[in-house]
């Protein structure tokens, strides 16, 4: 794999995961802004839709972080060491 290809692959993964985080977080914020009654709905004793979704935003941040680290630790690091071993381009 060439450096340019690896760089583009990293860019695709980084932007996709960033977009997921942006959609999740701004989805939450906009839901709070536009539909307060829904967010305040109690779904179980002590639990509202808002509290559940807020906790899920935190969990979502952990999940996307974990996905990236897993990909980078296995795939990215291996390709990087291959490219480093191959030496500078002619």
């Amino acid at each position: 794999m060439t450096l340019g290809l690896l760089s583009r692959q990293r860019w695709r993964i980084a932007t996709t995961l960033s977009a997921v985080m942006i959609v999740v977080y701004f989805g939450f914020v906009l839901l709070v802004a536009f539909d307060k009654p829904l967010v305040g709905t109690i779904i179980a004793p002590g639990l509202s839709v808002g509290v559940l979704l807020g906790a899920l935003v935190i969990v979502a941040a952990w999940i996307v972080t974990w996905i990236y680290v897993r990909w980078a630790n296995s795939h990215l690091d291996r390709r990087v060491s291959e490219l480093r071993a191959a030496g500078p381009p002619a």
């Binding site: 993964i13 980084a14 932007t15 995961l17 960033s18 985080m21 999740v24 977080y25 939450f28 914020v29 709070v32 967010v39 305040g40 509202s48 808002g50 509290v51 807020g54 906790a55 935003v57 935190i58 941040a61 996307v64 972080t65 990236y68 680290v69 980078a72």
Partner: peptide, 23 residues
């Protein structure tokens, strides 16, 4: 509940730092 809006906002910046900036 309102406190949770701030907390989530302060946390979601970190994945962005990881994906785009840190390395």
């Amino acid at each position: 509940f309102d406190g949770l809006i701030y907390s989530t906002g302060w946390l979601v910046g970190w994945p962005v730092v990881l994906f785009l900036i840190a390395e």
